[in-house]
């Protein structure tokens, strides 16, 4: 997917962002940490949700039909745990997602597995379970909408969505 297309998608998502009731939900970080190249090492407040999304990385990706965490995913989650430790006012909801290759019911269950895998890892890093809610969206909320592996890989994800700490 080209950078231009990504940019359009981000804009589209931002425009639609209000729907979930969570203004930063999925709107940024489409490319993951460092991928966007927009203002990396920028003036973002390290305690801001935007910093969490763009610099720490708010999501981890999964292989087809899997809920085990890759080394890259663990590394991202270590960063998330560090940030959450430093910002104890935030609670989070971890959203588990699946690509469209699967039935609705199975994908809901698979998304729950993925969200829980991220949650368990954050707990192992010292984050209190009471701060970590989970929800699965199955295949209901893809972030990329093409029907090939390039998009599917981005859709098989667990996204750590911040709540509290700031009004939105």
């Amino acid at each position: 997917m080209s950078g231009l297309k990504n940019g359009i998608l981000v804009a589209a998502l931002l425009a639609l962002g209000a729907c979930t009731g969570n203004p930063w939900d999925d709107a940024a970080g489409v490319g993951g940490p460092g991928a966007a190249g927009l203002g990396a090492g920028s003036a973002l407040d390290p305690q801001s949700p935007a910093y969490f999304q763009q610099e720490v990385g708010d999501r981890v990706l999964f292989a087809v039909d899997q809920s085990s965490l890759s080394e890259a995913a663990k590394s991202t989650l270590v960063g998330q745990a560090r940030w959450l430790t430093a910002n104890p006012d935030f609670i989070v909801t971890i959203q588990g997602h699946a690509d469209e290759q699967g039935t609705r019911e199975y994908n809901l269950a698979l998304g729950a597995r993925r969200a829980n895998a991220a949650r368990e890892f954050l707990i192992s890093q010292g984050i209190a379970g009471s701060r970590l809610k989970v929800v699965s969206f199955g295949k209901e909320r893809p972030v990329e909408i093409c029907s090939n592996e390039a998009c599917y890989a981005q859709n098989r994800r667990a996204v750590t969505v911040l709540a509290g700490g700031l009004t939105g």
Binding site: E105, A109, A112, R113, R114
Partner: peptide, 9 residues
């Protein structure tokens, strides 16, 4: 129905 708890459905 199905219920997911601790990632297990």
């Amino acid at each position: 129905y199905s219920q997911a708890q601790g990632g297990n459905t």
